[in-house]
């Protein structure tokens, strides 16, 4: 029940973010400053998210050698190939191989 309320809240928030300008603010202008700030939301949130997923709530980094190398490989591949599929496939293979070798 609580889970469903949480999901519903995010669902409503998501709909709101997609609908707000279309439904209510159609003839208002967004200032260039706000537009620019919104452009920085994407990379900033993603970077903070990646870190959050690799850190325990106590602030401890959970990052082994295999994870670190896989992240580096993924970063370079994403930059060079522009393909999520290739990036994820290769970096996961690197991750698994290193884990097996180091185990």
């Amino acid at each position: 029940m609580t889970f469903f309320i949480v999901i519903l809240l995010v669902g409503l928030g998501t709909y709101f973010s997609r609908a707000v300008f279309i439904l209510v603010l159609a003839d208002r202008h967004i200032s260039p400053g706000v537009k620019l700030a919104m452009e920085y939301v994407g990379p900033s949130v993603l970077a903070a998210l990646v870190v959050t997923m690799l850190v325990t709530p106590e602030g401890e980094l959970v990052l082994g050698y295999a994870e670190l190398v896989a992240l580096l490989v993924a970063g370079v591949l994403a930059w060079k190939s522009r393909s999520h599929l290739l990036t994820l496939a290769v970096s996961m293979v690197v991750f698994w191989s290193l884990r097996m070798l180091l185990a």
């Binding site: 993924a74 522009r82 994820l88």
Partner: peptide
Amino acid sequence: GLGFVVPLLFLSLLVMG
């Protein structure tokens, strides 16, 4: 350890953006 693919995906999204 397939869950590790989640941070990898977000990193990939980040780099491409």
